[in-house]
Computed example of a mutant assay.
Amino acid sequence: MRRIIKNPNSKIIKEDLKYKTKGDNSNLSIALLIEQKRFCAYTEEYIGINDAYDVEHFNPNFKNTPQDNYENWFCVKHKPNLRKSTKWFEEILHPTHDLFEERLIYNDGAFFSRDENDISTQNLIVLLDLNNEILVKDRQKYIARRKEAIEDIGKTPFEYFDKKIKNEIWVIRYLRAIQTEFDIDIWSMIPNVQEE
């Protein structure tokens, strides 16, 4: 999982979009999807045209309160959202925290707290089930296949991922793993999404 940077000039802020408990939230969900370049905030998987996705309230205790705002909303795939723990932990690392990627470390398919005493980061890992055994193995296999493909075609990681982004962006997953394993800024390589 990578840090999510919220845009101070977001359409959501400019147009004062609100989450509606009853009614249509498509304007809000599309705005979040566009800001996140169509990538799920939690799984870092591309959200395709046929994928179900949700407006996620990171802290569910804020839902339907004045604290439930742009900073608490993320676009996430539906199934991973269902997998999120229903137990809320009081101390938790927020996905927008300035030191997010320094505190939450990626290594060989799994996520760890840099500091074993960092309860907030450990709680985030548990809350989002980031180290689910199936997910860890899937990340490892994904990276191994990319390394093999890069070696087979004799290109640099940048060239390989640049071509994938241009021709089949839907196969790009696990942005933090790519960033760490290949030492490239994959997020900057992905173009901004236009209004739908």
Score class of each variant (00 low, 15 high):
Gly109Ala: 09
Gly109His: 06
Gly109Ile: 01
Ala110Cys: 07
Ala110Tyr: 00
Ala110Val: 01
Phe111Leu: 11
Phe111Gly: 06
Phe111Cys: 11
Phe112Tyr: 13
Phe112Glu: 06
Ser113Glu: 08
Ser113Cys: 08
Ser113Asn: 10
Ser113Thr: 03
Arg114Asn: 13
Arg114Leu: 12
Arg114His: 09
Arg114Lys: 15
Asp115Asn: 15
Asp115Ser: 15
Asp115Cys: 13
Asp115Ala: 12
Asp115Ile: 07
Glu116Thr: 05
Glu116Val: 04
Asn117Ser: 14
Asn117Ala: 14
Asn117Arg: 15
Asp118Ile: 05
Asp118His: 08
Asp118Tyr: 03
Asp118Leu: 14
Asp118Thr: 02
Asp118Phe: 03
Ile119Gly: 08
Ile119Thr: 15
Ile119His: 10
Ile119Cys: 09
Ser120Cys: 10
Ser120Val: 02
Ser120Asp: 09
Thr121Pro: 06
Gln122Glu: 10
Gln122Arg: 15
Gln122Met: 14
Gln122Thr: 02
Asn123Phe: 03
Asn123Tyr: 05
Asn123Val: 06
Asn123Arg: 15
Leu124Asn: 10
Leu124Arg: 14
Leu124Tyr: 05
Leu124Thr: 05
Leu124Cys: 11
Leu124Val: 04
Ile125Arg: 07
Ile125Thr: 01
Ile125Gln: 04
Ile125Met: 05
Ile125His: 02
Ile125Asn: 03
Ile125Asp: 00
Val126Gln: 12
Val126Glu: 09
Val126Pro: 02
Leu127Asn: 13
Leu127Val: 03
Leu127Phe: 12
Leu127Ile: 04
Leu128Pro: 00
Leu128Ser: 06
Leu128Asp: 00
Asp129Ser: 14
Asp129Cys: 12
Asp129Leu: 06
Asp129Tyr: 02
Asp129Gln: 14
Leu130Met: 14
Leu130His: 00
Leu130Glu: 04
Leu130Gln: 05
Leu130Arg: 03
Asn131Trp: 00
Asn131Glu: 04
Asn132Glu: 13
Asn132Ile: 01
Asn132Phe: 02
Asn132Ser: 12
Asn132Val: 02
Glu133Met: 08
Glu133Leu: 10
Glu133Ala: 14
Ile134Ser: 09
Leu135Trp: 06
Leu135Ser: 10
Leu135Cys: 06
Leu135Gln: 11
Leu135Ala: 08
Val136Asp: 03
Val136Tyr: 01
Val136Trp: 00
Val136Thr: 05
Val136Ser: 03
Val136Gln: 06
Lys137Ala: 09
Lys137Asn: 11
Lys137Ile: 00
Lys137Leu: 10
Lys137Thr: 02
Asp138Thr: 04
Asp138Cys: 03
Asp138Tyr: 01
Asp138Lys: 15
Arg139Cys: 00
Arg139Ser: 01
Arg139Ala: 01
Gln140Leu: 09
Lys141Phe: 00
Lys141His: 07
Lys141Ser: 09
Lys141Arg: 14
Lys141Ile: 02
Tyr142Phe: 10
Tyr142Val: 07
Tyr142Ile: 07
Tyr142Pro: 12
Ile143Arg: 15
Ile143Leu: 12
Ile143Ser: 10
Ile143Tyr: 06
Ala144Glu: 14
Ala144Asp: 15
Arg145Trp: 00
Arg146Glu: 05
Arg146Thr: 01
Arg146Gln: 11
Arg146His: 09
Arg146Ser: 11
Arg146Asp: 05
Arg146Pro: 01
Lys147Ser: 11
Lys147Pro: 06
Lys147Val: 04
